[in-house]
């Protein structure tokens, strides 16, 4: 079975470490916040200028001046800090954020990522995604392994305009956990009940498959 959105988020959450500053993108990455292990301290960075993002507010806490990068109303946890957008991207670009999790349309064997623009469709903009992928050393991409029509999203070369070049090393899909190194995909784990053959069939870029591929446990 392919991973559900929640399982994808749970798998990504295993990459968290105590004391990490983490930026979570919109969509599945946001769900990772629900699976921070008990007893672990993680601070969420929101690139509009908040470090220490908390849950959505109650009616009483609702405040138009407290929003996240998705423009949703949020709260700040105890020990949070708030700053301007240049400061926020200084910490992103300067490599101070420990982990960035974001979605994508495509990744390729060179670690390129395309996530913001589909030619012919209305282009809304890249927001902070280009800064995030250029600035972070530790990035996890979450996405489905293939499109609904079965077209692979793990490619020899991205076909869509890039968000960043050579910056992605870890991808968690609904079928597998894959690393990118030396111009190849390296299959590391498979989703429960998903065969290596299925993963290979849905991976267009060159992939190294070890003799045994451990199954993710949930």
């Amino acid at each position: 079975m392919a991973l559900s959105r929640e399982q994808l988020a749970m798998r990504v959450a295993r990459e968290l470490q105590d004391g990490y500053y983490v930026n979570l993108g919109i969509g599945i990455p946001t769900l990772v916040a629900n699976y921070i292990p008990d007893g672990m301290e993680v601070m969420l960075q929101s690139e509009n200028g908040l470090l220490g993002m908390g849950p959505f507010p109650t009616e009483e806490q609702l405040d138009a001046d407290m929003i996240n990068a998705g423009k949703q109303t949020v709260t700040a946890i105890t020990g949070a800090s708030i700053f301007n957008s240049a400061e926020s991207f200084a910490m992103i670009r300067g490599g101070h954020v420990d982990l960035t999790v974001l979605g994508a349309f495509e990744v390729d064997v060179e670690g390129n990522i395309a996530s913001w623009m589909i030619p012919g469709k209305l282009i809304k903009g890249m927001g902070g995604a280009m800064d995030l992928v250029a600035g972070a050393d530790n990035i996890i991409v979450t996405m489905t392994h293939a499109s609904k029509k079965g077209a692979s999203k793990l490619l020899p070369k991205c076909t869509l305009p890039l968000t960043g070049a050579g910056c992605i090393h870890k991808v968690v899909t609904d079928l597998a956990y894959v690393e990118i190194e030396d111009g190849k995909f390296w299959l590391k784990e498979r989703a429960p009940g998903v065969s290596v053959d299925e993963i290979v069939a849905k991976t267009a870029g060159e992939m190294v498959v070890p003799e045994t591929v451990p199954e993710m446990g949930f």
């Binding site: 690139e47 240049a86 991207f89 670009r93 282009i123 903009g125 890249m126 902070g128 280009m130 800064d131």
Partner: peptide, 13 residues
């Protein structure tokens, strides 16, 4: 003119 968010902030700064 689409400009990455951090680049936009830094351009102003």
């Amino acid at each position: 003119e689409l400009t990455p968010q951090g680049t936009l902030a830094e351009k102003m700064r």
